[in-house]
Structures are given as C-alpha cells and as structure tokens.
Simulated assay, not measured.
Amino acid sequence: MRAVPDTFDPHVVSLIDARLAQIEVDHGVRVLWAIESGSRAWGFASPDSDYDCRFLYVRPREAYLDLWPGRDVIETPLEGLLDVNGWDLAKAVRLAVAGNATVAEWLRSPWIYRGEQEFRDALLELVGDVADRARLRRHYLHVGRDQWSLAGDGDGVRLKKVFYAVRPALTLTWLDAHTGVPPMDVDSLLDQVELTQDVRAEIDELRALKAVTRELGTASVPPHLAAWVAEVLGAVEDEIDAAPSEVRTRANEGFLSLLGRWAPA
C-alpha cells in the first residue's frame, strides 16, 4: 500500500523511502507499515510542520527467543523536517493491551509511505479486540488535558497545543457515539461526531489560520470552542483494572500469528 499526497515535498518523501530501506538492512528487520503521523496526518499542518514518519517492524522469529533482547524501538537522527522512528510489533501489541491508542492511530493514518494491507488489517482487528475502551478514554483524556494546560490562555495561546487538545476531545466524543477503533485525522472525526455549528465553525477558522501560521504561532481561542474543549476534557475518568488474563492470551496468540506470517527469514 502507498498513499502519499501531492502536497508532500517529493524530496522529503524520497529521503523517507531511502531511510526505511536502510533501516531494514542495518537492523535486519522487516518494515511492514510506515505512515505519516503528527499534524500532517491529523489534518492541521503548519507551513513548517515536520514530517513525522512512524513505522512498525518485525525481527526474525529467533530474535524473540533471545535471553537478552535488544531495544524494541528504532530511532533515527532528526534531520531538518525529517523525523523517522518505529516500534517492534511486540511493543505495539503490549501497548495496545495497556490502553495506548498510538498503535491504532498509526494503523488508521490516511498517509502511507509503505505497508502490507493484510498485516494492517490483521493487526487492526487484533488491536480492536484487545484494547479496553476505558483505557482508551483515559489515554485521550490525559493527552488532551496535558496539551490544553500547555496551550496557555488569553491572546497568546499556542495554536499547536490547542489542536493537540482538540483532536483528543473529538476522539472522546467519537468514542461516546461509536464502537471500534476511532479515526486518526480530524476530517474523519468531524464527519462522524455531532457538534454545534458554532464549535465546528470555530474549528474550521482556527484550522485555516494554522495552515498559514508558523508552528509556534499564537492566537486567542474562540469562546465556543474553548467552552466545548473544557467540557469534554472535564469528564470523570473511568476506573481501570488490570487487563484480564484472557485478553493477554488473545493478544499473545494474535502476535504469534502475525509473527509466523510476516517475520523475515
């Protein structure tokens, strides 16, 4: 699979392609899913936004039997607007069970540098099966609250942080109305949630402003949007218990199935 918009810088895309290929050679892994994350995929990029490539990979099966396993992340140097990092499949599954929503978001990114659709579909089904909605809600509540508190107030609010709070608020609204794995991007979320006309109009207004404002640009937050975000992020957190053993069993079985199908020889 590949889905890269014309708005992406072709030179940067070629650098990402080359870096992913080199990662496979240097680390002896297979990159199965590589996407754009961050503001470009979320739908509110600034003119100087980074390219945040994130990927999922698998090692040879024998590597998972090592008594002293290596790191379960691969990080590459930051160069200009280029930011390329990835997670091992095992880490991705463990985090999904723990309620981390990042894996599901990567699997639902609208922009794909390279990827195996069968792998994506199988892992997305597994994530949907083992992810606990209360944990997902807590994840988005914490992300939204943290970013909202960092945004500031008055006329000097950081637009980047505002949108980093708006997207979790939209996702929480989506979770209240739908089952399954929520979309990653703002456009899909807006299409699938109910908002007042005032809030939707103010989101559109700020998106248009951010599209022509540098990454650290500031502005005031429109009143209806501010009140809506505060209300959504003010929700009471759900009580969370440890993941049941049957969930961990299903996660382990799903991981082994994916490993058997996709691990490099």
Rank of each mutant, 00 (worst) to 15 (best):
M1A: 13
M1N: 05
V4M: 10
P5W: 10
T7Q: 03
T7G: 03
F8G: 02
F8C: 07
F8E: 06
P10D: 07
P10Q: 06
H11G: 13
H11P: 00
V13R: 06
I16Q: 12
R19V: 10
L20C: 07
L20G: 09
Q22K: 14
I23Q: 10
E24A: 09
H27P: 02
V29M: 03
V29C: 02
S39G: 06
R40L: 02
A41E: 00
P47E: 05
S49Y: 08
R54P: 05
V58L: 15
P60T: 13
P60A: 12
P60W: 12
A63L: 05
A63C: 08
W68Y: 15
P69A: 12
R71L: 11
I74S: 06
E79Q: 15
L81K: 11
D83E: 15
N85Q: 13
N85G: 09
G86P: 02
W87G: 01
L89Q: 08
A90P: 06
K91F: 03
K91H: 10
K91Q: 09
V93P: 00
V93H: 08
L95M: 14
G99T: 11
A101R: 10
V103L: 11
V103I: 15
A104L: 05
E105G: 14
W106P: 04
L107H: 01
I112M: 04
Y113A: 00
Y113Q: 00
R114W: 01
G115C: 01
Q117Y: 05
E118C: 05
R120M: 08
R120G: 05
D121F: 04
D121T: 15
E125T: 15
E125P: 09
L126N: 07
G128E: 01
V130I: 14
A134V: 10
R135C: 09
L136E: 15
L136W: 06
Y140E: 09
Y140D: 11
L141D: 07
G144Q: 01
R145V: 12
Q147L: 03
A151W: 02
G152E: 00
G152F: 00
D153N: 13
D153V: 12
D153T: 15
D155V: 10
G156E: 11
K161M: 13
V162H: 02
V162F: 02
F163N: 02
Y164C: 00
P168F: 01
P168A: 07
A169M: 06
L170C: 09
L175R: 08
H178S: 13
G180R: 04
G180M: 06
G180N: 10
D185E: 08
D185P: 03
D187C: 06
L189G: 08
L190W: 06
E194Q: 14
T196N: 05
V199E: 04
I203L: 09
D204Y: 10
L206I: 03
L206G: 03
A208S: 14
A211P: 09
A211W: 12
A211I: 15
R214E: 14
E215K: 12
E215N: 13
L216P: 01
L216F: 15
S220E: 14
V221Y: 05
P222N: 09
P223A: 15
P223G: 10
H224T: 14
W228P: 01
V232A: 01
V232C: 01
G234R: 03
V236I: 12
E239L: 10
E239R: 11
D241F: 04
A243T: 09
A243F: 07
S245P: 02
R248Y: 04
T249D: 05
R250M: 03
A251Y: 05
W262R: 04
A263K: 07
A265K: 08
